[in-house]
Design a protein around this nucleic acid. Structure first.
Lengths: 126, 126
DNA sequence: CACCATTAATAAACAAGTTAATTAAAATCC
DNA sequence: GGATTTTAATTAACTTGTTTATTAATGGTG
């Protein structure tokens, strides 16, 4: 039961999978208690850090495809963690913004999430 | 457009996502031409390398949860790429085996897949 | 202005990940 | 031997990933 990830020829993709699971498992657990998913957290975090922005930009920042983001925004809107407003100049666009309820979730979980991120850096050798 | 992955504080999980996509994108493309998915390939590959075995063992080797594996085995069976036989001594168990058709898919794609794996090692710094 | 290409967002279809529950067979324990 | 626990596999419900198609608005060009 070592901490090193095997990087031999054919096990490489599997090593990536195991590393991902080792990192994301505890993160999912914390977020499940908060009632949101890993991807929903990423979207909220982008909005909290960088302010209101358009879906295309969010998808780039949060590393989510636009189709996935569409669904996620719908769920976050249902939970009232974000809100949207139309852009007048270009009616194809919209601006997404985090709500007060969304900010509360961020503040309640950010310290623990940062702790887990630090732990991850350690796992990966800094 | 550098090749290095940013490992700063909060971007770490996102770096993992980007690395994963950079690695798996080309792999998915090759396998799509062969008519199977990344996970189906992993299952076939385990069976080809290690011989017939039980689902629990496959799930460990291929890094798939048992529920996911159940579905994947069903699809591989429909495609006639694997076959199963019951275990007499313990009727909860079964033995999964790759078929000739399954082996053909392996042989047709293994060289290119190994090439991509080598490329991945290089991307990750060997 | 009309036509065509481009862009932002959404929708649809399928495969997989995750968690929790369920089924059925084996093993254990009294 | 019968009740209980454990184990292998499956099922169910929900969310996301991926690809392709679609909708609607904008931009550009003749």
């Amino acid at each position: 039961m070592t901490n090193s990830l095997p990087l031999t020829s054919r096990s490489l993709p599997i090593a990536l999978l195991r590393a991902r699971e080792r990192v994301m498992g505890p993160i999912r657990s914390v977020l499940a208690d908060a009632g949101i998913t890993e991807q929903q957290w990423r979207v909220l975090r982008v909005l909290q850090e960088e302010g209101p922005q358009e879906p295309t930009q969010i998808s780039e920042r949060a590393c989510l495809s636009l189709p996935s983001l569409t669904r996620i925004l719908k769920k976050l809107e249902d939970k009232k963690l974000i809100k949207r407003q139309a852009v007048e100049k270009d009616r194809r666009r919209q601006i997404v913004e985090i709500t007060k309820e969304g900010m509360q979730i961020i503040h309640a979980n950010l310290p623990e999430m940062l702790r887990l991120a630090a732990q991850t850096r350690e796992l990966m050798g800094g």
